[in-house]
Write a protein that binds this DNA or RNA. Structure first.
Lengths: 208, 208
DNA sequence: CGGGTCATCGTCCGAAAGGACGAACCACGG
DNA sequence: CCGTGGTTCGTCCTTTCGGACGATGACCCG
């Protein structure tokens, strides 16, 4: 019997997952969580085998699914975490994998793929949606144009229209550091300004 | 008895909606559709009272939920269409309302709100999520933040990462003119920098 | 014809961004 | 054990951007 915890801020999605997965004979849904903090708490208390984790949680909290994943994976005897999200941006994928996710699925995945991924995760295997797997392979093949996670973090804030000073404050670093990251980003993306970098990153699918 | 048709490309969401709405005594789900064309066909054939319509359909087809809504509303004795989507961008809302939607709900809406909206739609009333309603009112109050065609031209070049000097050369005008257009754009979009303006324009659906 | 919007071009000036150096710390792998 | 890459910080300097004034002519609409 595989014990599942479902963490998603959309009631509709939670209901759908419960209906889809609950009908499998060897699955048992032991809990649901509607935000990142509740997910961590529930994972600790209910001791599930696999956590289905959304990456985007509404404005309710500021903790993201990636944060929650990291915290869950640092519990003792942690459950496997299967990330389930809408988008396939490099930034999200990288953040999730680094946080210790066992798999990365898109919400438009067909049910059988979802079920298979849960079984794989419960067995300790990795389960990546085909789209995601090929994207990761692309990244392996062309390591030169890949940004570090910190650089992505900076670039996302740049794309949101924040100034260097604001970004520095958000990330708790000096403005010099932000400019340094940006210089590396410009070099990697072959851009000479922040807006050009954002444009290139969007075109290449690095940002969504 | 209210007959429902559910149109959404995500199996998880469809399952969730069926589970949530199917348990209401006076609701009956008469069909599901996984893309926009199938939704129109099903609406014509099954003659539901209310169609729950997603706005974003995956890359499968090119028809959007707004198109499908328009076509459904142009049937004879058309059902009411309740748009159900993830995003609350002004462009989406406006497109849906113009296409004849009776309501606009976000997928993170609580179930009771969803049920209430379906009943309201079936009764021929409008049902807007509070967030959406207030946004529409804001738009009414704040007279048209729409950009002139020249301003849009400039903004697109800005979004492509070009500098003021490059934009000026491209459009065969002086750099001063570009800066003047940008100042107007900043004012209309309530932004203080080019990247922030691009970000806002994207969020509002002004830029793709 | 007056009033509004749009597009075009100015100047002045402070703030922000970017380039060009350098340098320290740490983790990780060959 | 040493090199490589990532993250952090620094200074000096130039370029670009954005704000705050402005001005002109073209156009449409009531």
């Amino acid at each position: 019997m595989i014990h599942l915890l479902i963490a998603d801020d959309h009631p509709i999605v939670r209901t759908g997952l419960v209906a889809l997965l609950g009908s499998e004979d060897d699955f048992e849904i032991v809990g649901e969580a509607s935000d990142a903090d509740a997910a961590v708490e529930a994972a600790e208390r209910l001791n599930p085998d696999v956590v289905l984790m959304d990456l985007q949680f509404g404005a309710a909290g500021n903790a993201t699914g990636a944060h929650a994943t990291r915290r869950i994976r640092s519990l003792e005897a942690p459950p496997y975490v299967l990330v389930l999200t809408n988008y396939d941006s490099d930034a999200d994928i990288l953040a999730a994998v680094e946080a210790g996710a066992s798999g990365y699925l898109l919400k438009d995945a067909p049910p059988h793929e979802l079920v298979a991924a849960v079984r794989a995760a419960a067995a300790g295997e990795s389960a990546l949606a085909p789209v995601i797997a090929s994207r990761l392979l692309d990244r392996m093949r062309a390591p030169h144009a890949s940004l570090s996670s910190r650089e992505l973090e900076v670039l996302e804030l740049v794309a949101a229209g924040r100034s260097n000073a604001e970004i520095a404050a958000t990330l708790f670093v000096g403005e010099t550091t932000v400019k340094s990251h940006l210089a590396h980003i410009f070099s990697k993306l072959d851009a000479t300004s922040r807006t050009a970098a954002v444009s290139t990153a969007r075109r290449r699918g690095i940002l969504r």
